[in-house]
Amino acid sequence: MTDRTIVESGSMGRVAYARIAPNEDLVHAVEKLCLAEGFRNAFVRGALGSLVDACLETAGGGVRQVQGPAVEIVSLAGEVRAQPDGSLRASLSGVVADTEGKVYGGPFVAGANPICMTFEVTLEEWLPAQMDTATAA
C-alpha cells in the first residue's frame, strides 16, 4: 500500500490492557489483542515484558537474534494499522536487553519473538477522522 497521507487527523478512542502469556509471538499478540477488543487502528501506550529470544530486523533486510532467556523488552513504541485487505498489522520497534543487560534495538520481526514470562501492554484506539464515515469498520 502506498499511503500518501502525511497528516491524519483523528482522535483517541477506547483503551485496553492485556497480559499476554508465554510463547505467544509479540507482534501477532498485539494484533490479536486488537481483534479481541475490536480496534482497527491503535497506538501502544505502554509495554514491558520479556522474550525467550529476541529477533530484530537489520538494515540489510536480515535479522539479528539476541539470545535469552530472558531478553527483557526495555523500550517499545508502535502502532497497529488496518490494511486494505481488512487484516491488521502491528509495527513495533524497541530496545531489548540480554541476560547481561546489554542492549540491542530495531523493529521486532513478526512471528519470531516468543514471550518468555509475560508481556504487559496498553493500547489506545486511534480513530482516523475519515473513518467516522463510510470506511469505518
Binding site: 483517541m12 478512542g13 477506547r14 483503551v15 485496553a16 490492557y17 492485556a18 497480559r19 499476554i20 502469556a21 508465554p22 510463547n23 505467544e24 509471538d25 499478540a29 490479536k32 489483542l33 479481541a36 477488543e37 501506550r45 525467550v52 529470544d53 529477533c55 535479522v63 537474534q65 532467556p69 520481526v109 512471528g111 519470531a112 519473538n113 516468543p114 518468555c116 489506545e124
Partner: peptide, 26 residues
C-alpha cells in the same frame, strides 16, 4: 532466521493466552 523456540514452563498450560480488559476512554 532460526526457528523461534518455545519454553516449557513448570505449571499447566493455560489455554487463555491473551487476558485483556478495556475501557471506553483513557
Amino acid at each position: 532466521r532460526a526457528r523461534p523456540r518455545l519454553l516449557i514452563h513448570p505449571g499447566r498450560f493455560n489455554p487463555v493466552r491473551i487476558n485483556s480488559l478495556g475501557a471506553p476512554t483513557a
